[in-house]
């Protein structure tokens, strides 16, 4: 299981949990599992999210591996100027 940290305003969709556990081994499967286990997150996931995996921010790399030891943080989609 992978522990995923969810930002504060989404915690009402994860039963108040700041960290949720999902069965996943890649960027894509983390998002799929979050959507399956916590359907309230779907609008945000569809609007766009990033994942920080072990401190490195990934915008959209589906096949990036994730392990049970990984630090995984759900983040809003990045933009810049």
């Amino acid at each position: 299981m992978v522990k995923v940290t969810v930002w504060g305003s989404l915690r009402s969709f994860t039963d108040g949990q700041a960290v949720v556990e999902v069965q996943a081994d890649t960027f894509k499967s983390v998002l799929d599992a979050l959507a399956k286990d916590y359907p309230g997150l779907i609008p945000q996931i569809e609007a766009g999210v990033s994942l920080a995996i072990d401190g490195r921010i990934y915008k959209d790399s589906w096949f990036t591996p994730v392990t049970p030891d990984s630090e995984v943080v759900l983040m809003p989609l990045m933009q810049g100027g």
């Binding site: 940290t5 930002w7 920080a52 072990d54 401190g55 490195r56 630090e71 943080v73 759900l74 983040m75």
Partner: peptide, 17 residues
Amino acid sequence: KNAAKKGTKSSYGPTYD
């Protein structure tokens, strides 16, 4: 005294490299 550094859990979630 308060600076973020390698290993700091950032205020937005991830741990800094």
